[in-house]
Design a protein around this nucleic acid. Structure first.
Lengths: 402, 402
DNA sequence: CTAATTTGTAAACGGCCATGACGAAATAGT
DNA sequence: ACTATTTCGTCATGGCCGTTTACAAATTAG
């Protein structure tokens, strides 16, 4: 059977560039870089056979990537087979770096990641940001960025872009934070506040967390649901290796999926939304605890001590999550569900009831549920890596800037 | 801000082909054909400016497409502006044709669609197929296909492929019907039964229906949810102009989204699934009617007469649908929801309660709900058009076959 | 030590789009 | 009516890019 090729507007490098010889070259540069990056170390001949070009063509492409400082020659490979050994190539550890930043409710963090994916510099600033005006927060963040950039530059890296993860809604393809309830920011344009001549990306921390899971997670599928609870409960949906954002960018609002249609009414206008059962406020209330800054730690502490009320509250939250996820899994048929963010820390008490609900409501084999190994680092790493991926996906872009 | 190019494995023509000059040519041929097809009639210069190539390049591409019989020269355009008028090009009405077939519970249908999208031949065979063995049904279908192909050939069309819509689950990228409850077929390989040297595609009728909506619907968005009820209740999810199939191909199982978690238990193992409230059986039972062949007609008749029991049953089904769709809309943020298949015919009685539920449970503007204008024709047209799209997406493929 | 194998590179080749120029066919202005 | 202008389609030229072919280098097998 012939593979169906239905598609009208292909995404990514494949077609965003005009289909001319220059575009072709540019895409092939990306393919070479991707191949080496994926394998860690590869000879020219290996790259050629992997991406379907000839050795001669790959040679010229590699030359160019080396000239741009994106690829390095490691020297002859250890010969295991007959024939002349290849010369190992690796992605450079001294080229461009992705700068990731995170604006948290109680901290700011910045890190630099090189093309190999290694974190090469980082800086953290603790301190509650809830209710503070954007300007001083961004000023602090700017100095942190400056520190990290300086440290990266000492290691012969240069910043290729800045990506900022924020705990709130970000307008699609913009730098504007539409609403960040936990910071109490509204319609804040970070582009105007952040200095820098680099490309800037601003996105929701949940999205970056999911992307981190996609890029860094162990044995990561290309199709999964990444659930996190920071502000409300959000699910980032990854389909075919890409984030599903929705028409208005509101996709993934798992928190307002109806769990019990006649349940308590919700701020969204609905009734019995998941957030009424598994949201932070709801769980705290059910557990009979007073809120403080580190809610996850609070809950985990008490649950650890074996307090039945707290455990029951978390169990019930898990059940509600399981019901909502059953719906999501039936709709999307993902390979796995990953619990990230605050949910990762509470998973010991959430998972049993969650999985019971999920398997009980599924005919065939239930969708496996995993806990994110990245934990709270996800968003920051995802942000930094998003910049790195941009370079990997279009290496020519690094020469297009002064 | 630079557009993020994140993507690792791009889909479609864009990268499936090796990135060589031949591939480039092939993609550009597709772009020219797409442009003309989208606009109906276009001059070479207009195509050039639209797809970003030069007039000279487009000229040679057009020449090739004309030589292959995919494009036609209509003659000089009516000049409205200064300058020499262009020579209008149109997609040929005498080239390849897509043959679509539908295996329904009470009918077989076949049609031929030309590259312009016009239905040029069709044949229908009424008769209940429930419980019949696959072989005689396929034999009947084969003769219908023969008739349609003969008729198409009289109009100087030649079949470029056959796509079959079946009311059941089809294994991904295969010709095997895993399960078709209403036909009572299991693990039936249509590839072995259907003759022909053409490319064959077999898929679920709901999927083809959604694709028809995507390709033929009025003002069709690239991101929507197509809900249909044939066997069970299914939703085809279209994201960025492509069908979201899920890891195992089971995506879109709206029928088993939990609506009332403590409701009646369902064959799927869950409780309170949508199907328990809006499935055909459930609605019939609630309406107090005896099943017969044409269930939609039956329900519509009685509802039309104003029978309160029937209307109430449909109202309740609409409510349940609304609850399930609220969850789906929150997750996916589609541009619209389209009711197709049996639901389209019953929409007058379903819509009010469905929309009430959907708007009541949404904070911002609710996702609009539309009724498919294609109605029962959807799957058949979608199947035929899928073949046409395959040609449009890779015109060079028509010369690659003897 | 020779034959076989594999790697990387160089030169010639061919395909494809861009560039620039030209004739053709329409409109706009005088 | 006639010329200038604009736009269209095509042709010849040139540059870019991957392929093909050939060859030297480096390793293993015998």
């Amino acid at each position: 059977m012939t593979a169906p090729l239905h598609e009208a507007r292909p995404a990514g490098v494949g077609r965003a560039l005009p289909d001319t010889q220059q575009g072709m070259r540019r895409r092939n540069l990306a393919r070479v870089l991707h191949a080496v990056s994926a394998e860690g170390s590869l000879s020219r001949a290996a790259v050629a056979s992997r991406i379907g070009l000839t050795r001669a063509a790959v040679s010229t492409l590699v030359d160019e990537l080396i000239r741009w400082g994106l690829l390095e020659e490691l020297g002859p490979e250890r010969p295991g087979r007959v024939g002349r050994p290849g010369s190992a190539l690796a992605v450079s550890g001294r080229g461009p770096a992705g700068i990731g930043a995170e604006i948290g409710v109680d901290h700011l963090a910045v890190c630099a990641v090189d093309l190999r994916g290694a974190v090469r510099a980082r800086a953290v600033h603790r301190g509650a940001n809830r209710g503070r005006a954007p300007e001083p927060v961004i000023a602090e963040l700017t100095t942190l960025v400056g520190q990290v950039v300086a440290e990266a530059e000492r290691e012969e890296l240069w910043p290729a872009g800045l990506a900022v993860a924020v705990p709130g809604l970000v307008a699609r393809d913009s730098h504007t934070v539409v609403r960040a309830p936990n910071l109490e920011w509204r319609d804040t344009d970070l582009g105007a506040l952040l200095p820098g001549d680099w490309p800037l990306t601003v996105d929701n921390e949940a999205n970056f967390g999911a992307l981190a899971e996609l890029w860094l997670g162990a044995g990561t599928p290309r199709e999964f649901l990444h659930v996190s609870a920071e502000i409300g409960i959000g699910a980032a949906i990854v389909v075919d290796g890409q984030l599903l954002r929705g028409t208005r960018g509101f996709a993934g609002e798992l928190g307002h999926v109806p769990v019990r249609p006649d349940g308590p009414s919700c701020a969204c206008g609905g009734r019995g939304c998941l957030e009424q059962y598994a949201g932070q406020e709801a769980v705290l209330r059910a557990a009979g605890l007073q809120p403080r800054e580190d809610l996850v730690g609070l809950l985990a502490e008490h649950a650890e001590k074996g307090e039945e009320g707290v455990r029951a509250a978390l169990r019930d939250a898990g059940t509600a999550l399981g019901i909502a996820l059953t719906g999501a899994v039936n709709l999307l048929d993902p390979e796995t569900v990953v619990l990230g963010g605050a949910l990762a820390g509470l998973s010991p008490w959430l998972l049993p009831s969650l999985e019971a609900e999920l398997t009980g409501r599924t005919a065939g084999p239930a969708c496996p549920v995993a806990v994110s190994p990245l934990g709270p680092e996800g968003p920051l790493l995802g942000a930094a890596h998003s910049v790195v991926r941009a370079v990997l996906d279009d290496p020519a872009s690094v020469t297009k800037r002064a």
